[in-house]
């Protein structure tokens, strides 16, 4: 079943045509990986899905992005959109405040100040991010004291706190060591039962290990989009094959 759909999506930074006529249909409760060499537009595309590109000056977008059938660029409340579509960034970026407040931040800004409810949300979010056992005794301590891998799981928990349906992840393990990376990958496989995950990754092994679908980007275009095992075992396009076999990029 489709949840997010890009239709003839184009994006320009000033005169630079960064995304060219993208058509992509994201399946619900699956992990979709976006791969490609750096500068190919995969992160830019990811950021069109929750309108984070709104923050950048001189960006022009044409075409549609349909979320549950509604165009998010046509009179769609961006705050509602970002509640539904959460995001995790390349570098762990916890807020400089206690662990508890990091998770409670989202519900609070949306008007929930009920202590008991917040407690429950914090616990559930941390449990979903497989971090609860490690931090339950230090919820009032600064989040900056956690290790890099813990911080990134905290950021995932923070994104889950507002009960999103989709999680956008922009190279979430690129700043982490192999063991932390493995933990996050296991977590993602667990999370896809409840959430739809779209992950940008520079690691083809990672895409192959965890994703169900893979889209290969090159110079702002989607070259190939298919089930992950087809892309990796039997790519249709020559350029995809070149990329995954390491001949360029």
């Amino acid at each position: 079943m489709s949840i997010l759909k890009a239709e003839n999506l184009n994006l320009y930074y000033g005169n630079n045509h960064a995304l060219k006529n993208i058509n992509l249909d994201i399946r619900k409760n699956a992990i979709t990986a976006l791969i490609g060499p750096s500068g190919c537009g995969k992160s830019t595309f990811l950021r069109t899905l929750n309108r984070m590109n709104d923050l950048i000056e001189n960006v022009r977008i044409t075409g549609k992005v349909l979320y549950e059938g509604k165009d998010i660029y046509d009179n769609y409340d961006v705050i509602e959109l970002r509640k539904k579509i959460g995001m995790v960034f390349q570098r762990p970026n916890p807020f400089p405040m206690p662990i508890y407040d990091n998770i409670a931040y989202g519900p609070r800004i949306h008007g929930n100040n009920n202590k008991a409810e917040l407690d429950e949300i914090v616990e559930n979010s941390l449990k979903s991010a497989a971090l609860w056992d490690e931090v339950k005794d230090r919820l009032k301590k600064s989040a900056l004291g956690l290790s890099g891998g813990q911080q990134q799981r905290l950021c995932i928990a923070r994104a889950l706190s507002v009960e999103p349906e989709v999680l956008l992840m922009d190279e979430p393990t690129s700043a982490l060591d192999p063991i932390s990376t493995m933990k996050i990958e296991e977590l993602l496989l667990e999370l896809k039962k409840k959430y739809t995950i779209i992950i940008v990754t520079h690691s083809m092994q990672q895409a192959a290990r965890i994703s169900d679908y893979t889209a290969f980007f090159l110079s702002g275009e989607v070259i190939e989009y298919d089930e992950t095992n087809k892309i990796f075992s039997n790519p249709r396009d020559r350029r995809t094959e070149d990329y995954i076999t390491g001949r360029f990029g």
């Binding site: 984070m52 509640k83 800004i109 994104a159 507002v162």
Partner: peptide
């Protein structure tokens, strides 16, 4: 300096810019 990194995280949770400034950026 204080906005680096954390601003996007707050906006991505659906906070407005002013909420982000008031609750995350200014305190630090």
């Amino acid at each position: 300096t204080a906005a680096k990194g954390v601003k996007e995280a707050s906006l991505a949770l659906g906070a407005t810019e002013w909420q982000t400034i008031k609750k995350v950026i200014l305190p630090s």
